[in-house]
Simulated assay, not measured.
Amino acid sequence: MLRRSAEDTAVDVVVYGLLLLVLCVTLYPFYYVLVISFNEGKDSVLGGVYFWPRKLTFENYDIFLSDSNWYRALGVTAARTVVGAGLSVLLTALVAYGLSQRQLLFKRTYFAIVIVAMYFSGGLIPYYVVLRSLKLLNSFAVYVVPTMLSTFFLLIAVSFFREIPQELRESAHIDGAGELKVFGRIILPVSAPLLATMALFVGVGQWNSWLDSAYFVQSDALRTLTYRMMEIINKSQIPTDAVAFATGASNVTSYSLQVTSMVVSIVPIVCVYPFLQRHFVGGMMLGSVKE
């Protein structure tokens, strides 16, 4: 066993010290939001709340959870995240599997269409016209249909599927399996890192999206959680006493409701991430090393 010198110990101390500093700087904003959400709103305006609530209260959460619009928005957001991410992962993987086949005709044309679609956009107004012609406006489908195919992950998935040994497909074809059965029984099970990475990124994008709810939806029953958060943020210009009168609680402010909604929106992602972390770490290395 090699003996460690004083210089090695000093370097380790500096490196771990810097890592600890980066960790604190990264996590503290989330911790601060959590602390403010459990502190009285009017007391938070005075400042000086940094590490723990000065006046502990659950009033912010009581006001937040007493509004049925938040429950409805949370349900819509959860539904669009699950359905949107699931359809996007399935369709993107299916299209990528077809493009990864070496014997595919007009392959260059298909890839050219994908590249153009990824780098160029028609703009908001043509996009709105297309959604209107497809009768997707003011419906739940407007959240999931336009995102069913991810061109970015499509290229990554094509590269991943090309690395899968052809012998697996050939042996399955010899046993009489068709392409769909090969895709479902062989390709998808060995593509767990790819699918988990796609699901995480697409799911977080669906969870955080609010522009589509603001531009393409008019029904309050279809508003998302992030859209409701933006409404609360826009109310930050209202005087504190007006917000307190509207909520019926003298200690609740628009800012305290903002941070409370942030905590509620962050918790689901934090709970889901540990289950995908193992596959996510492997998926981030896709295409980075070639043998």
Rank of each mutant, 00 (worst) to 15 (best):
R3L: 14
R3N: 11
S5T: 13
A6N: 15
E7R: 15
V15D: 07
Y16K: 13
G17H: 04
V22A: 14
L23I: 10
L23Q: 11
C24P: 03
V25F: 14
T26H: 14
P29K: 09
Y32S: 03
D43T: 13
V45Q: 15
G47L: 10
G48I: 06
W52E: 14
W52T: 13
L56K: 14
F58H: 13
E59K: 15
E59M: 14
D62V: 15
I63D: 03
D67P: 09
N69D: 15
R72M: 15
L74S: 13
A78K: 11
A79W: 08
G84Q: 13
A85V: 03
V89Q: 06
L90N: 01
T92V: 12
A93V: 01
L94T: 15
L94I: 12
A96S: 14
G98I: 07
L99E: 08
S100R: 06
Q101G: 05
R102D: 15
L104Y: 06
R108I: 09
R108C: 03
T109S: 15
T109M: 15
F111W: 10
I113V: 13
V114D: 05
M118S: 08
M118A: 10
Y127E: 14
V129K: 15
R132A: 14
K135P: 02
A141N: 03
V144P: 00
V145Y: 03
T147G: 11
L149I: 02
A157R: 01
S159L: 01
F161S: 01
E163Q: 11
P165S: 07
E167K: 03
L168W: 10
S171A: 12
D175Q: 08
D175T: 03
G178C: 05
G178T: 06
L180E: 12
K181M: 12
V182T: 13
G184Y: 03
G184R: 05
R185K: 12
L188P: 04
P189S: 00
S191E: 02
S191P: 09
S191W: 05
P193S: 01
L195D: 02
L195Q: 05
L195C: 01
T197D: 05
L200I: 10
G203E: 06
G203T: 02
V204Q: 02
Q206C: 08
Q206R: 07
W207N: 00
N208K: 02
N208Q: 02
S209N: 11
S213K: 05
F216K: 00
F216G: 00
F216R: 00
V217W: 08
Q218D: 09
S219E: 05
S219G: 01
D220H: 02
A221N: 11
L222A: 00
L225K: 01
T226S: 13
T226H: 09
Y227D: 00
R228E: 09
E231F: 00
I232N: 06
I233D: 00
N234V: 01
N234H: 07
S236V: 06
I238F: 08
P239D: 04
A242R: 14
A244T: 08
T247E: 07
G248N: 04
G248P: 07
S250I: 11
N251Q: 13
T253N: 07
Y255N: 11
Y255R: 11
Q258A: 06
V263A: 07
V267P: 04
P268H: 01
V270C: 04
C271S: 00
V272S: 05
Y273A: 05
F280K: 09
G282D: 11
G283I: 06
V289Y: 08
K290N: 08
K290T: 03
